[in-house]
Design a protein around this nucleic acid. Structure first.
Lengths: 347, 347
DNA sequence: TTGTAAGCGTTATCAT
DNA sequence: ATGATAACGCTTACAA
């Protein structure tokens, strides 16, 4: 089999005794081309199995109709769903998606952003990694006039478009719900406090206690741990205290909540009677454990759609008026507390 | 703020009274450039905040160092993990990944493949959607001399590299395990039979029954259903039979296994005492339900790594000898049966 | 409506 | 070791 060069618009032009410009026009259905020749060109292009070369086209046009996303991990439900939301929305506009994962590694994140810049994506959508708080790579992207949209985990003092959850409020509601159910000693499993979203979850927790005149017991606030084993050990220690908590808000994520449930089962602690458990992020499994786990849904898909809409809205605006670019607009989406079995006491 | 044009190698060249070729050479650290000037160029490039334009470079070189992946859904654990595996492996070689999801939709899948071809990816990695069995778009890619690697759900009579699981064997082992545990009437929840992997799971099931001289009862074989509600209804009907099954092999996936567990809990059927449950694909939650769910681990990350290795291996081979391209090699990976609580009877 | 020609930012092939 | 130049495939003024 011979190498078989890819057919270009020149090949089509030659075959039809036309010129490349006409072919290009027809292919982009410009109005400045005769309807008949246009049909002819389209037909021959199909016959010759022509595939446009996006590289060339993008290089020439200076834009790629491509959006790049950087997330810590794509195999986390929340991110996978946000990406689905973005993808769905941009796809129908003929845009493409390049997905990179930083693996929670700052260096890799920098590399991802650079790659995307080199690829000349029209927009970079990012949720920053938990590792490191140097955002010069993002500033750099901004300096290069690249549309930047942050979501969920955002570098706050970077002036970009942002789509976030009202995390503190959600956290406040979750803890308030626990208090309503009669839980009085509520422990908190924290996420990494370098990230704003986890500080906000802590703030919401503290706020709810304060609002309800409950004391804050520092020994009930457990700092983030990176391994499952460590989490399990922490929870076990917590439940073995002389004066153990009667509820645990696993603000880190549902996986830690699941860990709590496991330990509770293991130690014979009844959920929700003796221990209330609330997780965060509405992983699919929280619905089917027994008891099912109360959690916070972040509307991930909707966040993705919002990001896309924001981009297109901004892109249009940029087209019309000058200088509206990278206006530091922030859209806040209200998460929803899903009350399930793990916090519903049969009083 | 002025538009700020991106700096090119010409800008660097001009500043240093050199020519673009030298700058290019230095940037690609060619051997044909003086060490001093090279350092100088590198330094100035950094100072000027130069970012290479991959579009131009790729267009010129005719290759993109980019691999495209098409999967039904990225928010399914299995696929997310395969992608992670691929990404990790190719990243260190300086390759990029473009991820597309077909949403189990044939038309969208075709579109994805076309997009990737237009983007001139060096390789397309695909797991085909369950919808439709027309693979002309893939044949087309092959005709265009694009390296194609299929994994998991493969179009069998397409001559490409393939990385698959030994699904039938895994399924056989799963059912054999159920039989060993003393279950005698084993029902099967099928996945969509258009896909080979699901036919193989069925074959493994039938084979295990036959090998153990157990009768095949067609009323225990439940065809795939696309909604959770339907699955639940099916399982309920199954367990309400006068002569109900004492085990269910949810060969479709762990979510259907979870559905079974739910229904069983709901109906007061004890797992594993009265009903054994085995799922497929080792979703994270199967470890933490109670009882935990016996399932089959497909080594998703490893599949991803294998795909990458296969690509690089093939790429090298192609470099050396002519005509080894697209040899229809198939690598089969043995899945692992994870025996957990849902099938371990305390006899 | 169609053709001509320049240019997007690189890299490769010649020269020098 | 460096420079000049063509080419990758496409789009787009401008001209006809």
């Amino acid at each position: 089999m011979k190498p078989k060069k890819r057919v270009t618009i020149y090949d089509i032009a030659k075959k039809l005794n036309l010129t490349a410009s006409s072919v290009s026009r027809a292919l982009n259905n410009s109005s400045h081309v005769n309807e008949n020749t246009k049909q002819l060109i389209l037909k021959t292009a199909a016959e010759m199995n022509y595939k446009p070369n996006s590289l060339a086209s993008n290089l020439r046009k200076g834009k790629t109709q491509t959006i790049g996303v950087v997330v810590p991990r794509i195999n986390q439900n929340f991110f996978a769903n946000v990406i689905s939301g973005i993808e769905e929305a941009i796809y129908q506009k003929g845009y493409n998606l390049i997905i990179c994962q930083s693996n929670e590694n700052h260096e890799k994140e920098v590399q991802c952003v650079n790659t995307l810049m080199n690829q000349h994506v029209d927009c970079i959508v990012i949720s920053v990694s938990a590792d490191g708080n140097d955002y010069s790579h993002l500033q750099n992207a901004l300096d290069h006039n690249i549309q930047l949209i942050q979501f969920d985990r955002v570098a706050e003092n970077l002036e970009t478009l942002k789509v976030i959850n009202d995390t503190e409020q959600a956290s406040f509601e979750a803890v308030s719900h626990l208090i309503e159910q009669g839980y009085k000693r509520i422990a908190l499993l924290e996420g990494p406090q370098v990230l704003g979203i986890f500080r906000q979850r802590r703030d919401g927790y503290l706020n709810a206690l304060k609002t309800n005149n409950l004391p804050v017991d520092e020994s009930l606030i457990i700092p983030n741990s990176w391994t499952k084993e460590q989490t399990t050990a922490n929870v076990r220690a917590l439940l073995s205290m002389p004066n153990p908590p009667d509820a645990i808000f696993a603000s880190r994520d549902d996986f830690s909540a699941l860990g709590v449930l496991e330990v509770a089962n293991d130690m014979g602690v009844k959920v929700p009677e003796e221990l209330g458990i609330c997780g965060y992020s509405n992983e699919a499994f929280t619905q089917i454990t027994s008891p099912s786990i109360t959690t916070v849904d972040q509307h991930a898909v909707y966040i993705g759609q919002t990001v896309s809409n924001l981009y297109f809205h901004e892109a249009e605006a940029k087209g019309k008026e000058k200088e509206s670019r990278n206006s530091p607009k922030t859209i806040s989406i209200k998460p929803k507390l899903l009350i399930r079995g793990s916090t519903q006491r049969n009083k």
